[in-house]
């Protein structure tokens, strides 16, 4: 249970960083933390008590659920794409405005 709570803390932390920070890079970091917390959540739910890694040995053993891992692999790819796109946009903004602080951007 504690681990879920810790995960939730991570989730909130990420969200707060995205909302509160003005620096776009920091925001992107926040977004990554935010997304990672959900990935970890998926990994947590896939764990079966006393479960072995899901590599087939025999039918009687208990295995952890492999499906969330696979799902999260996809989600990670999406997350990386998002991050790289965001970084590209930040570079573009930096070239135009010479700043990446959001409150300064809003003024111009």
């Amino acid at each position: 249970m504690t681990i879920y709570l810790l995960n939730m803390a991570l989730f909130s932390l990420g969200l707060i960083i995205i909302i509160r920070e003005s620096n776009l890079i920091k925001k992107i970091i926040g977004l990554n933390i935010f997304q990672s917390s959900v990935f970890i959540f998926y990994l947590l739910i896939s764990k079966v008590e006393n479960g072995l890694p899901p590599v087939f040995i025999d039918a009687t053993s208990v295995y952890s659920n492999p499906l969330p891992h696979v799902l999260i692999l996809t989600a990670i790819v999406v997350s990386i794409a998002t991050t790289s796109l965001a970084l590209a946009l930040v570079i573009k903004i930096k070239n135009i405005y010479k700043t990446i602080e959001e409150d300064e951007l809003d003024e111009t």
Binding site: I18, L24, L31, F34, Q35, V78, T82, A86, L89, I93
Partner: peptide, 12 residues
């Protein structure tokens, strides 16, 4: 980028 942030939050 602002849409990216809010959209990603929604997606997450």
């Amino acid at each position: 980028i602002q849409y990216l942030f809010i959209g990603s939050i929604g997606a997450v």
